[in-house]
Amino acid sequence: MSNKINAQKKRSASRRIANVVVLVLSSIALIAVVAPSIWIVFQILHKALPHFTFSVLTKTGAGLDGGLKNEIVGTAVISIGVVLLAGTVGILSGIFLAQYAKGRFASFLRAASDILAGIPSIVLGYVGYSALVVGFHWGFSLGAGVITLSVLVTPYIAKTTEVALRQVPINYIEGAEALGFKPTRVLSRISLKTALPGITTGLIVAMAISVGETAPLLYTAGYSQNLPKLTLTHSPLGYLTYAVWTFYNQPTKTALQLSYDAALIIMVLILLLIGVSRVIVAQTQRHAETRR
């Protein structure tokens, strides 16, 4: 009898130890993920805020001095262009992959998209440079930058759209079909609406990537301290990541200051993007079965 009780005690002790070990390990893993991002945020705030003036937002660059207005507008223009171009192509591709592509053809398309997603951004930048900037004689330009960045993020948007559409419950779709909805109406009223949080998240991440990406733009968009011209060719323009990278390596204090300001603005922009996406998702999912 007592043997049995002892064995039981032993077992429950080992279970408790296992519990603690798992808890400790997972906590360490979590800290390893969260700590660097908190540290980065804190560092940027610490370096940028003490010297921050709002004139940075309103003045364009002048050598190693001035403000970041041209870069801010440039980043905004590029991101909007990418969302329009890559968003349209990516979402349509995702719909095609989820609804229409079948069998080997679908596997081929998915593989092609995955390969495109795996190409390093600097390689895409070089391809954009040789094809658009040099080949088409577009020069460093808004068009070349937007197209190159779009190629980079389109597979990502297509993937998230496809996955989100595949997760729409078959219950909804059959219910709508049984009610006599046209296929396009099932898609627009039921599937896309239900998949919207996933699709929006994909778009926002794509936008965040284009706000934060540097390498492809160095090759294609060039740089300018003037406000961007809204023409697609021969229109080099500034963008925030360029300021972070270039001004950080300059010898003057004001340049270093501008570098941190640019980093701060990128961070705020990305936080804003996340916030906006949350609001959109909350607004459209008021009637959803599960709240996200």
């Binding site: 419950p169 219950n171 909804y172 059959e174 219910g175 709508a176 049984a178 009610l179 009223r189 039921i190 609406k193 239900t194 999912q285 009637h287 959803a288 079965e289």
Partner: peptide
């Protein structure tokens, strides 16, 4: 010819 399913399937709308 309408249909009612085994599990209730209201749409995600009001």
């Amino acid at each position: 010819v309408g249909m009612l399913f085994q599990r209730p399937n209201p749409f995600p709308m009001s």
